[in-house]
Design a protein around this nucleic acid. Structure first.
Length: 859
RNA sequence: GCGAGAGUGGCGGAAUGGCAGACGCGCCGGACUUAGGAUCCGGUGGGCAACCGUGAGGGUUCAACUCCCUCCUCUCGCACCA
């Protein structure tokens, strides 16, 4: 009679597989439902974050299946990426082998959790059968002018002889492997995708997503795309040819532009310095700033710094010469990399001007107030009237923005411009373990796309990991040397590979048609199955992945492959899994198993300090191994606790004791049913009430069913759904023994248990199957229809009305559910506790909230 | 600095503007038992009480955890967005 999940969970997993319970046919036979969780990077083993996201997705998938939908619930592997190469360097394992071994292990772990995937659709993005198609997409993008080449600055480590990701650069600007090596900026030709062409649509698409996506994610994307309206203005160079174009959102302040700031990386900076003989000092400033970590450079703490380049340009409206500075806060990647500085009306410029003694000229003043440059303690960034602005003086500054821009357009020295913060997507990576970029470099013809019929360009896997430095592909001469598809002369393959976000930008489409070897995607199937009805994943992908995937989908839509404008109808972004940290004064972070029950370090016996709950991470050792957890409590407990401990979008605090509670609850369910097994089997189907006991049981059953259905379907409040099920179980435990065998109540109890097991099935599927079978049912529980709540049975015979006097709770009365206001009012006023509070006082008001509350205001 | 969130018992958390603390953990008590760290049953915000209690202070309302304003603290994201 003991609940031993280890004795039956694996058996049910085999049964599901054998029955093809989660296989999804291509042909749609009932309303489709596409439930997708963000696919994992095969890092080695799954962690609690995975358990959480896949459990949430599985709950939804299983629920929708029982609701009669044809559910597509696939899984695969985001299998290209840096860690595989790092592992190769560290342990000498080939990235391919490392990756496929990890996949095998993690697949096993996911199966152990009992997630209801259609495994027939599984793929790894590192297989040529997958990536060949994105090579094709890329060729289309080149043809459509969406993919183009541009020089871009990258982190370069001389020791590694390769480009580093931002995360591989230490804070102090050194390499993560060679902490003596200074990371420098190097300009390389890179492939870019013109995502900014879709910037406006990515923004306006939010209208379609509103309601289905969390508002905070949309907000984050909005800020990421960062549309701003302003103007480009040309500043001629003083005493020479050429001009510098700036972007500004404040063309109305042009008369106050007293200097110009440029990004230190801007090529013109050194040019000015050379001409002015200031090369040495400017070079040292530029090197220092460029070497700074990006985070450091963008930090608020960073003091605004700059250096005079030696160059001047001319303010086009005042005609005055303005000095050009290189400044650490100007970003090369945004706008034109140069900013007109208006110290009176921009705080950064103000601080900069004060520091370097540059003139401050007021050109906008708040209405009805004076503003004097000499007495200003900070920039005035608010609205007002334009002053000292030539013909625009006296104009409101909002109006001025438009008129100044118009004026420039007429003179041909400026133009209105919408600028995005979003930048085009650089997809080139100088790495081995990625999808080869299918182009060939020919000395004569330049860049030549690999002909479509020669795809895929297969990533050669027969490489030895002896080479320590650089991209191993670059050393594979036999692979690199090809003849030019165009002139047949000698040429060389591109050795860069794609950013791995490329793979994750369309995998959700490929799941619909994973085996197609004639074309990337069958448009008919796409039309039938897209969009993804529910996408589940972490908030860390709010901007990059989710914007790239939306962009890709829009591009494929334009190519006629993907239907609709948006790929993900609903998004659930789940919170992090956190756990308290344990810190030994001698040994630092401790794993839970490194600490004795009494709270002392196993190694030294010192008292271990229990720290606040933080995101689970190996480095802090505050982790729980899913497999260990499943081994001890079973998959159902792991799942149940993940869903019960917090609502999905909030962070979840892991607690071993909480897990125990979940296990105990499932044990209670198990014993409740297993102990009554024979009685339940013997009971007939429910055919109508037989008295008060039966009615009461059915009332609880159907009220619970109603609540659980609503919580899962409408509110996505899985934790409260579970607590409702717990209440129902508590109730069933209080049912007296004879009732289980009495013909009056047994059928209602049988119905209660069946509904209980079906409700539990998406949360804790294994125990539900086990008990479902135990009470004599043949088919799989997960294939049953979600039960229908009988609202007649759920009806209560009495309602509780709360009585407040002056807003304070003073009494409770019960009434007939059909009672009208008159009856309830009379009943309330007759209540002795109410009389006590109102007698002798003047009744000013009586508020009646139907069937719920009466509030009497007395004076 | 900007942006997004969150502050409710000892803990995780409940509560369409309508009984604050459902459910679970922990703790306390009881039953069963040779035994209990199993199981079952019950109790459990503070205060002797009137009452007081949802980060602090204001406001709106018959009624505020919930709406509005000011502030504090914490978490997350960020590319100083000109």
């Amino acid at each position: 009679m003991k609940y031993k999940p280890q004795s039956f969970e694996a058996g049910w997993q085999e049964r599901w597989e054998a029955d093809g319970a989660f296989r999804c046919r291509d042909e749609i036979e009932s309303p489709k439902y596409y439930c997708l969780e963000m696919f994992p990077y095969p890092s080695g083993r799954i962690h609690m974050g995975h358990v959480r996201v896949y459990t949430i997705g599985d709950l939804i998938a299983r629920f929708k299946r029982m609701r009669g939908f044809q559910v597509l619930h696939p899984i695969g592997w985001d299998a290209f990426g840096l860690p595989a190469e790092n592992a190769a360097h560290r342990h000498g394992t080939h990235p391919a082998r490392w990756t496929y071994e990890n996949i095998d292990f993690m697949r096993h772990q996911l199966k152990e959790l009992g997630i209801s995937y259609d495994w027939e659709r599984e793929f790894a993005t590192c297989s040529p059968e997958y990536y060949r198609w994105e090579q094709l997409f890329f060729l289309w993008m080149i043809r459509d002018g969406l993919a183009y080449r541009k020089r871009a600055l990258l982190n370069w480590c001389d020791e590694c002889q390769t480009v580093l990701a931002n995360e591989q650069v230490n804070r102090d600007g050194t390499c993560f492997i060679h902490d003596q090596a200074r990371v420098t900026q190097r300009e390389l030709d890179q492939w870019f995708l013109g995502i900014t062409k879709y910037a406006d649509e990515l923004l306006s698409g939010h209208e379609e997503l509103r309601g289905g996506w969390p508002e905070n994610i949309l907000e984050m994307q909005r800020n990421w795309i960062g549309r701003s309206e302003g103007a480009e203005i040309d500043f001629p160079l003083a005493g020479g040819e050429g001009k510098i174009t700036v972007f500004t959102t404040r063309p109305d302040t042009i008369y106050g532009a007293t200097f110009m700031s440029m990004a230190p990386e801007h090529p013109l900076v050194m040019e000015f310095a050379r001409k002015a003989g200031r090369e040495a000092e400017v070079r040292s400033f530029v090197d220092r700033v460029a070497g700074q970590d990006r985070i450091v450079r963008s930090s608020d703490e960073l003091e605004k710094e700059g250096i005079f380049t030696g160059g001047y340009c001319v303010n086009p409206v005042t005609g005055k010469n303005v000095p050009i500075f290189a400044a650490n806060f100007v970003l090369y990647e945004y706008g034109t990399g140069a900013v007109m500085a208006v110290p009176a009306h921009d705080q950064r410029d103000f601080e900069f001007a004060k520091k370097y003694g540059l003139p401050v000229v007021v050109v906008v003043r708040p209405e009805g107030e004076e503003l004097r440059a000499e007495t200003m303690g900070a920039a005035y960034e608010g609205p007002g009237l334009m002053v000292d602005s030539g013909p625009f003086t006296g104009r409101g500054n909002e109006e001025g923005k438009r008129e100044v821009t118009l004026h420039f357009e007429e003179r041909g020295i400026g133009r209105g411009k919408v600028q995005y913060r979003l930048r085009d997507w650089g997809v080139s990576r100088q790495r081995y373990w990625g999808c080869p970029i299918p182009v060939i470099h020919c000395g004569k013809c330049g860049i030549v796309p690999v002909p479509e019929n020669e795809l895929p360009v297969v990533l050669p896997e027969n490489i030895a990991y002896t080479r320590e430095k650089g991209n191993p592909l670059a050393a594979l001469e036999e692979w690199i040397r090809v003849s030019c598809p165009s002139c047949k002369g000698p040429a060389r393959r591109e050795t860069d590979t794609f950013d791995t976000f490329f793979e994750s930008s369309w995998y959700f489409l490929r799941y619909i048609d994973p085996k197609n070897d004639r074309e990337p995607l069958d448009p008919g199937k796409m039309k039938a199955w897209m969009p993804v009805d529910q996408y589940v994943g972490g908030v860390e992908h709010a901007c990059m992945h989710l914007i790239y995937a939306r962009f890709f989908h829009k591009y494929l839509r334009d190519r006629g492959l993907a239907p609709g404008n948006e790929p993900f109808k609903r998004l659930l972004s789940q919170g992090m899994v956190c756990m308290a940290t344990l810190e030994c004064p001698k040994h630092g972070w401790r794993y839970p198993e490194e600490v004795e029950a009494g709270g002392n370090c196993r190694q030294c016996g010192e008292k271990v300090e229990v720290g606040r709950s933080m995101k689970m991470s190996k480095s802090k050792r505050n982790v729980v191994e899913p497999s260990a957890l499943i081994g001890k409590y079973g998959a159902d407990t792991a799942r149940l606790f993940s869903l019960f401990a917090a609502p999905p979008e909030k962070d979840l605090d892991w607690s071993e004791q909480g897990v125990e509670g979940g296990f105990r609850f499932l044990g209670r369910v198990y014993r409740l049913v297993a102990q009554r097994e024979n009685s339940i089997r013997a009971a007939g189907a429910f055919r109508g009430d037989h008295g008060e006991g039966s009615r009461r049981i059915r009332q609880v059953t159907h009220r619970t069913l109603k609540k659980v259905t609503g919580d899962v379907e409408e509110r996505y409040h899985f934790n409260t759904a579970i607590s409702a099920i717990m209440e129902m179980v508590n109730f069933l435990y209080l049912v007296e023994d004879p009732a289980w065998d009495s013909p009056e109540t047994a059928p209602a109890l049988r119905e209660a248990v069946e509904i209980l097991l079906l409700m539990l099935s998406p949360f804790a599927p294994h125990i539900s199957e086990e008990l479902w079978e135990k009470i004599g049912n043949a088919g799989l529980a997960c294939r049953q229809s979600w039960p229908q709540a009988d609202s007649e049975a759920a009806r209560v015979e009495e309602i509780l009305v709360v009585v407040q006097i002056n807003g304070k709770l003073r009494a409770r009365i019960t009434a007939d559910p059909e009672a009208d206001e008159e009856e309830i009012r009379a009943k309330v006023l007759a209540d002795p506790r109410v009389r006590e509070h109102i007698d002798g006082k003047k009744m000013k008001k009586l508020v009646y909230v139907p069937k719920k509350l009466v509030n009497i205001v007395v004076g």
